[in-house]
Write a protein that binds this DNA or RNA. Structure first.
Lengths: 188, 188
DNA sequence: GTCTATAATTTGATAGAC
DNA sequence: GTCTATCAAATTATAGAC
């Protein structure tokens, strides 16, 4: 006897999928209703405004994403570990989900979004940068500024790599980005 | 006596700006009309369907972008030249335009776009990858596969860097990405 | 919690006058 | 080439019954 997830969670699941595929302005509350199997009015019962869905999806996505990375401190002196872990999370998005990172999509639409959603998107990137910085400091024992630069390159290139790979319909392009990162960062 | 640009060009200018700010689904043909100073019906005279605007903008953007890069062959044996040139074009988008790359935005919305627009977006990335590959082969005298990997990293990280920098409201993040690329690529 | 019904607005697009 | 007028459909959202 499996526990059924609530309609509220189902709405978030569908919304996350739709944003990661078509962007926040690429679907309607009615689209969500149809996909969940309820009426649009019922969607508004759980989330009065569409932007409430966007905010909730982004918060939940951020928590799941950071949790899936594990503890930065555990990479002490293990130089390859944090990058390998990080690449795998993005590879799963591309290969298993066949979708982009939620916040890369929202970041690309920034000017067309409600402000409460852009605020949550910013937090996603800040928390990921923090994870990468502290992981690189633990793994490589390098100064904060060097870790910041590495983190900026890794996060930017993997977010961009997902977009390029998807747009070009070429999974190998993502692997080329990953290979480049691994090769170049073990040299430095 | 300066030559006035046509309304058709003005529509493309405004549409390009709006897509790069809010995404293709983040504005209406009426928004364009207001910004150009005509009525929505007049926009449809120049471009019958909204997607015709998207296709025309993407084609024009691609041509301008590639032209601004110059000839790849001119970088023969000049190792720093192609990367410096490429970074500067993206830096201009961030600092001068205060906008993302058109095709990064369209790439992020892929699933919610008319197919003729996604086709043009794909061509943008293909032509940029080709420019980078041939530039790196000329500059570094390296095998095609090594050039492909470098090109994938450079294009992905600069596209992603623009998105992160904009979303985080932190121009320095883009410079961190650029510094990382320059440092790591001159070592390899 | 979900439904029907409805409303105000927006959107993409067309017809036809000037 | 631009306008007024118009439209059908979609979109976000609310009121109130069950």
């Amino acid at each position: 006897m499996t526990t059924r997830i609530s309609k509220k969670e189902e709405i978030l699941d569908v919304a996350e999928s739709m944003i990661r595929t078509s962007g926040y302005n690429g679907f309607s509350t009615r689209d969500i209703a149809i996909s969940v199997g309820i009426k649009a009015a019922s969607v508004h019962y759980h989330f009065p405004k569409k932007s409430d869905i966007g905010v909730a999806v982004t918060e939940r996505y951020t928590e799941h994403f950071i949790q899936s990375l594990g503890e930065p401190a555990s990479f002490k002196d293990k130089q390859h570990a944090p990058l390998a872990t990080y690449i795998q999370v993005f590879r799963n998005a591309l290969i298993k989900d066949r979708k982009l990172c939620l916040c890369a999509v929202l970041g690309a639409e920034t000017g067309g979004l409600p402000l409460d959603i852009t605020a949550k998107t910013k937090i996603f990137f800040e928390r990921n940068m923090e994870w990468l910085r502290s992981s690189f400091i633990a793994a490589f024992d390098i100064p904060a500024k060097a870790a910041q630069k590495k983190a900026a390159l890794v996060l930017s290139s993997l977010e961009g790599g997902l977009i390029l790979s998807t747009s070009m319909q070429d999974d190998q392009l993502f692997e080329d980005v990953a290979d480049s990162l691994i090769e170049l960062m073990s040299l430095k």
